[in-house]
């Protein structure tokens, strides 16, 4: 059994009267691809915001690599190796693709920045667009840039918030190849596309009304009656 890299216990966060995340436990094994699924409004984005430090929890603890990071600000968590890619693309629209990637790449202080940026661009297939203004890229390319910036941080845990949203089929396949090729990086993946989830995930956690409904292997989740009732059945019908 691999080492535990992240462990969240009893995480809760309310907005007004709404308990967006309610007493959630989550354990991530080092190197696994862990998918987080659930209907809209189940609290997925709130949960990963708590993990990445964009929000602070009302209750509960988060341990990363054996150390308590519950009160650590977001930028300090990034420095420890937790990278977050935004659900709504958040790039530097006014800067070049090179500068966007360089801002991530230069965090690890490479000797040759240009070469490191080119390598980072190559991973997401943007090597031909380095001088383009990021805001002028197509939507799909902006998503890839967002993911590329996350990868360029060389994180130990990469949180991907709906990475394939708005991507074309060919781009989704490229994305899956990319994630499969990650060695040693733990991935927490929020994803609506069940084909992507089933193809990539080692384990799946299902969130429903802010609580963990089920957690286990893809096969076990597929077989879980409660999940079927709450989510998979409904989602199939909706699709």
């Amino acid at each position: 059994m691999a080492a535990v890299i992240l462990e969240a216990q009893g995480l809760s966060r309310a907005f007004g009267g709404l308990r967006a995340v309610d007493n959630v436990d989550l354990t991530l094994q080092e190197g696994e691809v862990h998918a987080l699924i659930g209907p809209n409004g189940a609290g997925k984005t709130t949960l990963v915001s708590l993990l990445s430090g964009r929000l602070t929890p009302d209750a509960g603890h988060i341990r990363f690599d054996g150390q308590d990071i519950t009160r650590l600000p977001a930028h300090a968590r990034v420095a420890r190796g937790i990278a977050y890619t935004f659900q709504i693309t958040s790039i530097y629209a006014g800067l070049s693709v090179f500068d966007n990637l360089a801002l991530a790449v230069q965090r690890s202080r490479p000797r040759d920045l240009t070469a490191a940026v080119q390598a980072a661009a190559l991973r997401v297939g943007l090597e031909g667009e380095l001088q383009a203004e990021a805001g002028a890229l197509s939507y799909g390319h902006q998503r890839l840039l967002e993911i590329g910036m996350g990868l360029a941080l060389a994180p130990r845990l990469l949180i991907l918030d709906e990475p394939t949203q708005g991507l074309a089929n060919g781009e989704i396949n490229d994305f899956m190849t990319l994630v499969r090729g990650l060695k040693g990086t733990t991935v927490l993946l929020i994803e609506h596309n069940m084909d992507v989830v089933m193809a990539l995930a080692d384990r799946i956690t299902v969130l429903h009304f802010g609580q963990v409904l089920a957690s286990g292997s893809p096969a076990a989740i597929r077989a879980d009656a409660a999940v079927q009732a709450a989510y998979l059945g409904g989602a199939d019908a909706a699709d």
Binding site: P73, A74, H75, S90, Y92, A102, L103, Q106, R107
Partner: peptide, 24 residues
């Protein structure tokens, strides 16, 4: 310089910078 780029990054998108590990 690299530091200058991180200053411009604050102007362009502070939240993104924070999530790249820069302390705003």
């Amino acid at each position: 310089s690299r530091f200058g780029r991180s200053l411009i990054a604050m102007r362009e998108n502070e939240e993104r910078s924070r999530m790249l590990g820069y302390n705003p």
